[in-house]
Write a protein that binds this DNA or RNA. Structure first.
Lengths: 357, 357
DNA sequence: CATTAGCACTCAGGGGGTTCGAGTGCTAAG
DNA sequence: CTTAGCACTCGAACCCCCTGAGTGCTAATG
C-alpha cells in the first residue's frame, strides 16, 4: 500500500500548511499552491484516499483535513524536508549560546531555558551517563563542630557533595586518614565492586572516623548508581502560546501534570528506535493525556562518558522540520562547547589580562 | 476615616466569600451568613459606603461586589483571621516534608515543588546570604589531561565547583602547592579583602600553577559576591487551575513572562515593609502585567548566615489566611530541618545497621 | 482512463434578538 | 437607624437563522 508521488506531495502540503495555520486544510488551499498541477476535485479524491488510509482526519464533515498521528509519522520519516535556518535565525541562536554558569547542573538548566526561548515552546535539558561511573577522588573537610563536608569527584568530571552532621566530634587527623583510605580503596571501583567485605575493611582502617564510613558509603553508592542528572524542564507556559491550548488551559495543565520531570527522564526508554534525533508523536506517547502532544529530542555528546539530551514539547501540529533544525544546531554547538571547555571559552590570553595590573 | 465594626465585618465576609467562590458577592449572600444580624438592605448601604472608600469594586452595575486591592490590603493587615490547619492538612504537609536530596540546590528545588504542590499554586524557593561570604577551603584535583576541578567551600556550608580546562598541562605537585597557597592566604578573607596586591602575591608563590590563578580567582570572587542562589520557580501551570486564568491563558503566560526568576530574586527589595511574612497585593507589584496577581512570601533561617525564602504566586483573590498558615508551617519545619541536619535525618543507629552484615 | 467542472448537501461559527434573574439604589414606612 | 418594597440595569444563556467553506458524487471532457 505505497503512496503515489502525488499523494505524497499532497500529504506534505497538508502538513506544511496545517503546521503554520493550525486550521484544517481544504482542497482549494492546496490547489492554489504554486507547484500543484491538479484541480481541487482531483485533490479531493486523493484526500479521500489518504483519509481512508488513516493518514488524514476530518474534524467534521464540512471541514478540511488535518494530518492524523500516522500522517505526521510518515511525514517525519519520509516527507520532511530539511529546514535551513535563516541567517537571522542562526545569528540569534549564536547570540543566545552564551552560557555563563560554572556549575554543570546550572549549565544544563540554562541550556533548557535557552532551547525553550529559541523555539518558543516548553523544553528540557538533561544529562545522562552512558557507562557506569566510578569515583575519582574523595575529600573530607571539617565545616564546623560536628559537621563535615564530603566532596566526591566522579568520572565524567562530575562533582557531588554532601554535608554530614554527626553528634560526635571527629578529629582532623581521623578525617585525613579516612580520606586517604577512601582514595586508596574506592577510586576507580564500579558500583558492583563495592561489597560488604570491602566496606568492612575500610571501616577497620578508618580509625576514629569509622562512624562516618556508612554515611559516606551510602552517599557514594547513591551517586554511582544515579543514571541521569536532574531534568531541567522549563517554559511550560509557552505551550499556551499554541492555538490548540489557547482556550483549553486545562489541557495544558494536564499535559504537564503527566509529563513531569520523572516521566521525561524515562522517555528514552519508550522510544521506538535509536538515533540522535527522536520524535514521539501524539498517541505513540504512553499516557492518554499526551495524545495531542509531541516531543522532539536530540542527543549530543558531552564527553567523558556523559551524554546530553535536549528536547522540545509541543502540540502534535508542530513544525518538526524547523524544531529539528534548531535542536540540531544547539546540539552541535553544545557538544563542541562542552568538550572544549565545560563553560564559556574564556581564552587563556583574556584570562591573563586580569593578572596584569 | 475609620471603618465601623460593622463595615469591617462586612468587608471580611466579602473577602472570605469571594476567595472561595471567585464570584462577585451580593448583599443577599452576606445577609444569609449565620452571624450577620442585618438585612440585605442595610448591607447594601454599607457596601455602597465601602465602595466609595475604594475598598470594594463593582465589575458592572448589576453585579455584586469584589474586594479592591486596597480592600485586600486592609483585610490582610487588620481583618484576616488565623487559619488553623486541619489535622488532615497537617498530616499531609508532614508527609510531604521528606526531602531526600543531598545537594543544597537540589533541596531548595524540592522545597519549591513541595510548596507548589501543597498550595496548588505556583511557588518558589530560594536561598539568600545574609552576610558576606568567605572561603573556607580550596581543593584542586586533576580530573584528566589538561582539566582540573576546583572545589571551593564557602561559609554557610556551601560548596561550589568548577571544571577548569587549560591547554597546558599542570604538574600534580604544582596543584598541591597552589592549593596550599590558596588555603593559606584566601580563607576567611571577605570579597573586599581580595586585592590586586594579594592576587599578585599568590601568583608569585604559585610556581608552575600560576596560569591557573586568575581563573581560580575569578571564580572565587564570583562565588563570594553572589548574593543569592538560584530561584527555583515551579508549578507555573497550577495558576491555570484558578478560575481567573482558566479562560485567559494568555494572561497567565504574561504573568510568568514578567515574573521570571530574576524578578523574583529582586522581590525582597521592593517590599513595603520587613518581616517574616510578606504580601505583595496586585497593583503594589511593579509591573502592570501582575496587577491581578499577588505574592505571599515567607523567610526562614537556614543557619550559618543563610536565609531561605519560600513564596507562592496566585491571583489577587487568594486565600491569604490559608496560604500564610501553610507557608508558616513549612518555614518552621524547614528551618528546623536545615539547622539540624541539612537533609533527611538518617539517625546514626539506622546508618550503622548497614554496616552489620 | 485519469481529470475536471458542476452541484447538492453538511455543518461549525457568528450575529442578532429575547428572556432570565441576580443584584443594585432609592424611597418610604417602621 | 433599619428594613421592606420596588423599579431598574445588565451580563449570561439560549435560540434561531444565516453564511460560507468544504465535501462527495456525477457527468462531461481530453
Amino acid at each position: 500500500m505505497e503512496l503515489t508521488a502525488r499523494q505524497k506531495q499532497i500529504l506534505r502540503a497538508i502538513v506544511d500548511i496545517y503546521v503554520s495555520t493550525a486550521e484544517p486544510v481544504g482542497s482549494k488551499a492546496i490547489a492554489a499552491l504554486p507547484d500543484m498541477r491538479f484541480s481541487s476535485a482531483t485533490i479531493r479524491n486523493e484526500m479521500g484516499a489518504l483519509t481512508q488510509m488513516g493518514l488524514l482526519e476530518q474534524p467534521h464533515t464540512s471541514a478540511g483535513r488535518v494530518p492524523s498521528p500516522a500522517g505526521y509519522r510518515l511525514y517525519i520519516d519520509e516527507l520532511m524536508q530539511d529546514y535551513r535556518l535563516s541567517l537571522e535565525e542562526t545569528r540569534s541562536l549564536n547570540q543566545a549560546l552564551e552560557l555563563k554558569s560554572q556549575e554543570f547542573d546550572q549549565m544544563m538548566s540554562q541550556v533548557g531555558k535557552l532551547v525553550s526561548k529559541m523555539t518558543d515552546l516548553p523544553a528540557y535539558a538533561m544529562a545522562t551517563r552512558q557507562s557506569g561511573a566510578v569515583a575519582k577522588h574523595f575529600e573530607l573537610v571539617q565545616a564546623g563542630p560536628g559537621s563535615i563536608i564530603l566532596v566526591l569527584m566522579l568520572s565524567g568530571e562530575v562533582v557531588k557533595n554532601k554535608l554530614i552532621k554527626l553528634p560526635v566530634r571527629t578529629q582532623e587527623a581521623d578525617l585525613k586518614l579516612l580520606g586517604a583510605v577512601l582514595n586508596a580503596s574506592l577510586t576507580d571501583v564500579p558500583a558492583e565492586g563495592i561489597t560488604g567485605e570491602l566496606l568492612e575493611k575500610i571501616s577497620r582502617s578508618a580509625g576514629g572516623a569509622a562512624p562516618l564510613v556508612p554515611l559516606v558509603m551510602d552517599f557514594t553508592l547513591e551517586c554511582l548508581r544515579q543514571q541521569h542528572g536532574d531534568v531541567h524542564l522549563t517554559g511550560q507556559m509557552r505551550l499556551l502560546g499554541q492555538p490548540e491550548y489557547k482556550d483549553a488551559a486545562d489541557k495544558a495543565q494536564e499535559v504537564f501534570e503527566t509529563l513531569d520531570e520523572e516521566m521525561i527522564s524515562n522517555l528514552p526508554a519508550v522510544l521506538p528506535k535509536d538515533g540522535p534525533v527522536q520524535f514521539l508523536v501524539g498517541p505513540e506517547n504512553v499516557a492518554k493525556e499526551l495524545k495531542d502532544t509531541s516531543v522532539v529530542m536530540m542527543r549530543f555528546d558531552i564527553g567523558e562518558g556523559m551524554q546530553g539530551t535536549i528536547g522540545v514539547v509541543g502540540p502534535t501540529r508542530m513544525d518538526y522540520a524547523k524544531i529539528t533544525a534548531k535542536l540540531g544546531y544547539f546540539a552541535e554547538n553544545l557538544g563542541r562547547m562542552f568538550q572544549k571547555n565545560g563553560s564559556t571559552p574564556p581564552t587563556l590570553a583574556e584570562a591573563n589580562d586580569t593578572t596584569k595590573e
